[in-house]
Simulated assay, not measured.
Amino acid sequence: MIPLDVLGTYFIACLILAIAPGPDNIFVLTQSALQGRKAGILVVLGLCTGLLFHTTAVALGVAVIFKTSEIAFTMLKVAGALYLIYLAWGAFRSGATAIEGKSGSVMQGGQLYRRGIFMNITNPKVSIFFLAFLPQFANPARGSITIQMLILGAVFILSAILVFGAIALAAGSLGEWLSRSQRIQRWINRLAGTVFIGLAIKLLLTER
């Protein structure tokens, strides 16, 4: 349904965006450093469970927009592109992200999982990002938009599991390395900003 080359490009973009320092992967990093790998993995599973909610909501909503209105589709493109440019601007302006290895209260396994779900579902920026990001890789000519969006959401979740899981497993050494290497953090942010700009341009050129 979705060509492999499109999925490959999409998957690489997902990996880059998951690696860029942000609240989710920093939370995984700190909890793993505080309580061990198991705690980090539980947070990852919670965050990715929350992504299922956003994927479903966006898949159903975008499918309606694709089918009903050229004007609504154009407004979605412009709004999505502006949001991506805003994210790029923020990424380029970001310095090193503060990584606190000994902060926060200790939570039990179930609490960690639920915290991950809560953090993701209650973050409206995730839905906005999905609205701006996923439609670029869907094409009505390939069949059901809803199914395509669900596939793209699943690939995004897979990339998040891989990146966040790797962070959880390597939390000790990775946290120490990132806390010392502000240059690396800045370069990751710049790479993410470049990806956001490229996605904004691609979104504006997308046809219904």
Rank of each mutant, 00 (worst) to 15 (best):
R142Y: 14
L152R: 09
Q148A: 04
P135M: 03
I157H: 00
L162G: 01
N139E: 13
F164R: 03
F137H: 09
N139S: 12
M149F: 09
F129I: 01
A132V: 09
G165T: 04
F137P: 06
F130K: 07
S159V: 03
G143F: 11
F129Q: 01
V163Y: 04
L134E: 03
L158Y: 05
N139D: 15
M149R: 08
S159F: 02
L158G: 13
Q136D: 07
L162N: 00
G143Q: 11
A166I: 11
N139I: 06
L131P: 01
S159T: 15
P135K: 01
L162F: 10
K125Y: 07
I151P: 10
V126Y: 01
L152E: 10
I151E: 12
I157V: 12
I151R: 06
L131D: 00
I128F: 11
F130R: 07
I145N: 08
T146V: 15
S127M: 08
L131S: 09
I128L: 14
I151V: 15
P135V: 01
A170D: 09
G143P: 07
N139T: 02
L150M: 14
I151H: 08
Q136M: 10
L134T: 05
A138H: 12
G165E: 09
I151W: 13
I161A: 04
L131M: 13
R142W: 15
F130S: 05
F164N: 13
R142C: 00
S144P: 11
A141M: 13
I145S: 06
F137T: 08
A132P: 02
A170M: 14
G153K: 11
K125N: 03
G153Q: 12
S144W: 13
I128G: 00
A168G: 02
F137A: 02
F129M: 03
R142M: 14
L134W: 08
Q148I: 06
S127K: 02
A132M: 05
T146L: 15
V126R: 01
P140S: 09
I161H: 07
A138K: 13
I151Y: 10
A138Q: 13
L152M: 09
A132W: 03
V163M: 00
G165C: 07
A141N: 15
P140Y: 09
F164Q: 12
I161F: 14
G165R: 08
